[in-house]
């Protein structure tokens, strides 16, 4: 099974790219169109100015993250697996380990036709399981909605973001706690001295991220020279 020209595998790859581009394009239109459709149903279309400001605050971080994910994961997953993985999401927490597990199980190597087929099968099967589990879960959740929206539970739902960042803090700080303490201390001092910044926390990601990346770069250079 080589990658030389004009094999059935080449035809499969060409068709996979064509199909992948079409379904990615349709998915994109659906996902961008849905907020407008839902907005017109709710009688409130999206505020484009606020969305643009939000994008400047956090979208750039995720854009860089998407580029890195594309560069790193595409070779692992092959064409079919990559199109599907980027459409269905949950890459790091599920699709990548799932595909790697399937690939290791059958002994396929990156860049081979076997890897292309196994990754696609794995990610398609994994995505279908998630879709099914979530659909069943949502069916069960619907009768629980009055409970979920009860006043007693509102403190929980008002603190989704702190809960996320608490969990993420452990995940990332443990990778380099000394690096983490400096931006944390700087941000704590800034928000203490200028409490009005609290309403613009997402904008503060930019200086905080720049500080952390700068410190990481200095450390990386120092280690490279050592």
């Amino acid at each position: 099974m080589t990658n030389n020209a004009k094999t059935p595998y080449d035809d499969y790859l060409r068709a996979t790219h064509r199909l992948g581009r079409i379904v990615s394009c349709v998915t994109l239109i659906l996902l961008l169109g849905a907020p407008f459709l839902m907005g017109s149903y709710l009688g409130a279309l999206p505020n484009l100015g606020a969305a643009a400001r939000g994008f400047l605050a956090v979208g750039l971080v995720w854009t860089v993250s998407s580029v890195v994910e594309f560069l790193v994961y595409t070779p692992m997953l092959g064409a079919g697996g990559s199109y599907l993985a980027f459409i269905t999401g949950n890459l790091i927490n599920m699709k990548i380990p799932c595909a790697m597990n399937a690939r290791d199980m059958v002994g396929a190597k990156s860049g081979t036709a076997e890897n292309e087929i196994i990754s696609t099968l794995s990610i398609a099967a994994s995505s279908l399981v998630t879709i099914l589990v979530l659909a069943l879960g949502v069916l069960l959740l619907t009768p629980l909605r009055p409970v979920l929206s009860s006043p007693a539970l509102q403190p929980a739902f008002n603190n989704v973001v702190p809960a996320l960042f608490g969990a993420m803090a452990y995940m990332y700080y443990r990778k380099d706690i000394r690096l983490a303490l400096i931006p944390l201390a700087v941000m704590a001092v800034l928000f203490t001295l200028l409490p009005s910044l609290t309403g613009s926390t997402s904008f503060m990601i930019i200086p905080s991220g720049a500080l952390a990346i700068g410190l990481s770069w200095l450390k990386f250079r120092k280690e490279a020279k050592a």
């Binding site: 990332y172 990778k175 944390l184 770069w217």
Partner: peptide, 27 residues
């Protein structure tokens, strides 16, 4: 460095939010 930059970027993001909670408590 790309790996380290990604980690640093997320450390920065988390620090901004945790810093805001500390600031909100104090001030």
């Amino acid at each position: 460095f790309a790996d380290k930059a990604m980690t640093a970027m997320f450390i920065g993001m988390v620090s901004a939010y945790l810093g805001s909670y500390i600031g909100a408590l104090i001030s």
